[in-house]
Design a protein around this nucleic acid. Structure first.
Length: 580
RNA sequence: CGGGGAGUGGCGCAGCUUGGUAGCGCGCUUCGUUUGGGACGAAGAGGCCCCGGGUUCGAAUCCCGGCUCCCCGACCA
């Protein structure tokens, strides 16, 4: 492609509202153009990169045995009512009406559609397994799109859905997709880590995210510091070994006066005891609660509540912090509360529906300092089981950097920022049951299929790659996803020889199968060098009067500091070698 | 949805406080010079000043209402 004929102009200044590197460079290099908040057009360079990523995905999905299909973006709301997500997926689910006033939605994901398709074609265990995928537009009316292509409302996604007859089959399908994902990201030239993750509103039990490490990422992940340990998890999901409390004989409960003490830190200081020897109470309510429901969370004073884990402990109900009014109405004393005495006559449970959720750290720790449920008083020597109980006892603690790895290793957790570029889920029978994707098994019994689903955000992958690979001059694109492989520039455009040789090099490289962007513009060298750096193609080739004197051309990899000279006679061989 | 900020040629910005019908840099057009890190000279083209209403002889500027975009948070495959 001759740059003089290529549609789209590079910009010297980024739009003022672009803040992240990928947003600035994708805009400046004419890869994308914003149309509305979170809605973008792809210009030729951006589209070429997108197509390259899509092709890699397509090849790997095909070779993993998945079959490509295409499903509609606009679909009847009915489909979503059947799965029960018409209301729970709001508001990202965008709705509209057609001309006959029928309710339609813009699909944010395609579990419903795929399962509907599977249901019509699935009868026997002999039909299983199969895996259907598409690379197609999704629309999610996100509350806050941000950072250019990193979080948008309309985007291309590869989504795949596997169907199996049993758990073992699902395991096989899931592992095959995980392996395909690793190959896709390797081939794309980017370093992506697979981490354990929470399933969120998609549902199901196991899920893994693929995260590209980058400071501007929205996600925090924890990775074990031990090289021999593979533990890595999203902060929402991350587990850790809670430091064991010293075993002690349980002592008698003792009430102490703690005037003016409202915080755990203040309490620990006042009683000269470590915060890990206290239990703190945090009050939540299900988001849908109208005010008479309290989730009473007890967790050791040195730990914080992980609201994603808490949501799972609440059977998926979204937790929100309880209001002071709700807390007081239930007879709870903020600052001096504990689960001790929840069931007392005229106690909190006689006034509100209270669920006691206790972090497992509390169970293991004897003789804790806890609130006495009256202002300015606390108990010493509170013991789980004797003095208070939980309706649910589980891990609801937030991991933080330095915590011990949950695996049997010597490592600790190290925090990284990252961008989620892929996510794979074991869905189980959540959709097959509601949508009727069932089959008759060998034993003659009708069963729902076991499903998995697997997504990659194509545009986000491009943006994330730039977040992870850029310098102050522009992008540094991996060869596999760069719009072209070589940026060829002829410098002295008033020198007929240079122009002729550059054109010849362009022809030779192109016919040798190298993808060349030929900067044939009549502009000063500095402009060409700056655009080459901005667009970030893997290799820059320069034809100049200076080099031609020695029969040489110059080559510089975008990811290298220095240029090298190569003989003009072997330009094709030299370029191919330099690209590797 | 809560908080903050911004809308003026394609991009970046000034002008607004103190009303008088718009200016700068880059980019664009033409001619000439120039050619290894965003060149120079000369001459040009290009603007419903986000939208609607109001005040005024007169509004980019003041007042009211609205829309859009960005950032932080909430939220979020």
């Amino acid at each position: 492609m001759r740059l003089s004929r290529s549609f789209g102009k590079t910009l010297r200044n980024a739009p003022a509202d672009a803040e992240t590197a990928s947003h600035k460079y994708l805009t400046r290099a004419a890869f994308v153009q914003q149309v509305a908040a979170g809605i973008y057009s792809y210009l030729p360079f951006g589209q070429r990169s997108l197509t390259k990523i899509s092709n890699i995905i397509r090849e790997e999905m095909d070779s993993a045995g998945a079959q490509e299909v295409s499903m509609p973006v606009v679909q009847p709301r009915e489909l979503w009512e059947k799965s029960g997500r018409a209301d729970t997926y709001q508001p990202p689910l965008a709705s509209l009406k057609d001309r006959r006033d029928r309710d339609m939605v813009l699909a944010p994901t395609h579990e419903e559609t795929t399962t509907f398709m599977a249901a019509a074609n699935l009868e026997s265990y002999r039909d299983l397994p199969f895996n259907l995928y598409q690379i197609q537009t999704k629309f999610r009316d996100e509350a806050r799109p941000r950072a250019g292509l990193l979080r948008v409302r309309e985007f291309e996604m590869k989504d795949a859905y596997s169907f199996d007859k049993d758990e073992e089959g699902l395991d096989v399908s899931f592992q095959a997709m995980a392996a395909a994902y690793h190959r896709i990201f390797n081939r794309s030239g980017i370093d992506v880590r697979m981490v354990e993750a929470d399933s969120g509103p998609i549902g199901g039990k196991d899920s893994n995210e693929f995260v590209l490490l980058a400071e501007s990422g929205e996600d925090t992940i924890f990775v074990c510091s031990d090289e021999n340990c593979s533990y890595a998890a999203n902060a929402e999901k991350a587990e850790f070994k809670k430091p064991a409390a010293e075993p002690e004989q349980a002592r008698d409960l003792e009430e102490v006066h703690t005037p003016g003490i409202k915080t755990i830190e203040g309490l620990a200081e006042f009683l000269e005891t470590p915060v890990s020897k206290t239990v703190k109470a945090v009050f939540y309510a299900p988001e849908t609660s109208t005010g008479d429901e309290i989730v009473f969370v007890s967790i050791r004073g040195d730990l914080e509540v992980n609201e994603t884990k808490l949501r799972n402990a609440m059977d998926g109900a979204e937790p929100r912090l309880a209001t002071p009014t709700e807390i007081t109405a239930a007879g709870l004393v903020a600052g001096s509360a504990s689960a001790i005495g929840l069931d007392a006559d005229d106690g909190p449970r006689s006034r509100a529906k209270i669920t006691s959720i206790v972090d497992d750290s509390v169970v293991e720790s004897p003789n804790l300092v806890a609130g006495a449920n009256k202002t300015d008083y606390h108990f010493k020597n509170g013991n789980y089981g004797r003095d208070f109980n939980g309706d649910v006892v589980t891990d609801i603690a937030m991991a933080s950097e330095g915590d011990a790895c949950p695996n049997d290793c010597e490592g600790h957790l190290v925090a990284h920022r990252g961008v989620e570029v892929g996510h794979i889920f074991k869905l189980g029978t959540k959709y097959s049951e509601t949508m009727g994707a069932t089959f008759v098994d060998e034993d003659g019994i009708e069963k729902p299929a076991l499903m998995g689903c697997y997504g990659i955000g194509v545009g986000r992958l491009l943006a994330a790659t730039i977040e992870a690979n850029h310098d102050d001059k522009g992008m540094i694109l991996p060869r596999a996803i760069a719009p072209y492989e070589v940026y060829l520039a002829g410098l002295n455009t008033n020198d007929e020889t240079v122009v002729a040789v550059a054109a010849k090099v362009y022809e030779d490289l192109t016919s040798a199968g190298v993808e060349v962007l030929y900067d044939d513009r009549d502009v000063p060298p500095g402009v060409k060098f700056n655009d080459a750096d901005l667009i970030g193609l893997p290799l820059r080739v320069v034809v100049s009067a200076r080099g031609l004197k020695n029969g040489e051309i110059e080559m510089k990899r975008r990811d290298a500091d220095d240029a090298t000279m190569a003989p003009l006679a072997d330009v094709v061989g030299a370029v191919k070698a330099a690209l590797l």
